[in-house]
Amino acid sequence: MLCDLDNVIRFYDLAPLAELERAVGVAEGTTAEVAYAPEVDLPLLLGKITKETWVDSIASALSDQMPLTHARELGMALADAPFRADDVVVAMLRRVRRHMPLVLVTNATLELERDLESMGLADLADHVVSSARVGVAKPDQVIYEIAAERAGVAAHQCLFVDDRWENVEAAVSLGMTGVHYQGSTDLQKLLDFLPSN
């Protein structure tokens, strides 16, 4: 099983950021819209820049809407947003791993290993394929091929779970079975066939 991390296992609390956005007079979501534009986000996800440089890029992009000090504050609030693991999903994935290899496949930063450790998930998967470590990001087919190889199986033997439809489509195009994740019930349906032990 190949599984995404963010918005499947890990969830961010963006309420403090939204409060700051209201305080400086911009619409909620403005910071994320700028930060996750490919030209700003992709270098971070490919391990080419640090989180600090990413914040600089966010602040620069926002600085035409507000003073640079406010723009930097918003960038930092996003970069340092608190996160948590979904305990229900983690329990399901630990069950999966007792029966088959589990590989996390995630567009992530160079801080991923530290983040997993902070959530108590350093041992969750057999392998972790991070875009920042392999230099390629979903939905590029190469990252799926790397993940299947780490799992030790052919692509057509892989089940791929992700919250982004374009990432699922890319996996399916390689012969994988794809699941567009929208909630833990999507996983539960898949796991009903597994033994309960």
Rank of each mutant, 00 (worst) to 15 (best):
V90L: 11
F83V: 10
G178N: 04
V179Y: 01
D140Y: 06
L5Y: 02
P43R: 02
M66Q: 10
G152S: 09
T177D: 09
L44H: 01
T31F: 12
A125L: 07
L104C: 01
N167V: 00
D162C: 02
V8S: 02
V89W: 04
V8T: 11
D6I: 01
A37F: 08
E113S: 09
R10W: 03
C158F: 01
Y144W: 11
G152H: 06
R114P: 00
V136Y: 14
D41S: 02
G178C: 04
R150A: 14
L174S: 07
K189L: 14
A35H: 08
G120Y: 13
Q182F: 04
V96H: 03
F11E: 03
A147P: 02
L190N: 06
L46A: 05
A85M: 13
S63Q: 12
D162G: 01
G29N: 09
E73W: 00
F160Q: 00
V134K: 08
K48P: 05
E19Y: 11
I9V: 15
L20C: 10
G183M: 07
A171L: 10
V24W: 07
D13E: 10
N107G: 00
A79I: 12
L102W: 04
M100S: 04
E73H: 08
D115Q: 13
S63L: 12
L74C: 11
Q188W: 07
G25S: 02
L112M: 02
A32C: 13
E113C: 00
T69A: 15
E39A: 14
Y12H: 13
T185K: 09
H127M: 12
W165A: 05
V40A: 05
Q157A: 15
D162N: 04
I146P: 00
L174R: 10
A15V: 14
W54M: 01
L45A: 02
S60C: 12
L187T: 02
G47F: 01
R114Y: 03
R98M: 06
G175M: 10
L20Q: 15
A35M: 06
S184M: 10
S57R: 12
V134E: 09
L116I: 04
L191N: 05
A18G: 15
L45Q: 05
M100V: 07
L2Q: 06
Q157E: 15
R98I: 03
R22T: 15
P101C: 08
V153G: 06
E145L: 05
G175Q: 10
D80V: 13
I9P: 08
Q141F: 11
K189Q: 13
T106L: 00
E21N: 12
M76K: 15
H99N: 08
Q65V: 09
I143W: 00
V161L: 06
D80F: 13
M119H: 14
A59H: 03
K138L: 13
G75A: 12
N167Q: 01
S184L: 05
V34A: 13
R72W: 09
V40F: 05
R114N: 09
M76F: 13
L110A: 02
S118N: 14
T185G: 07
L17P: 03
E28N: 10
L112D: 01
V179D: 03
E33T: 15
E149H: 08
D41Y: 07
P16I: 11
V172H: 02
A171E: 04
V142A: 14
E169S: 06
M92W: 05
L102P: 01
N107L: 00
A91L: 05
S60M: 14
V153L: 14
V168T: 02
N7Q: 13
V161R: 02
H70G: 05
Q65I: 09
V88L: 11
A170D: 01
K51W: 06
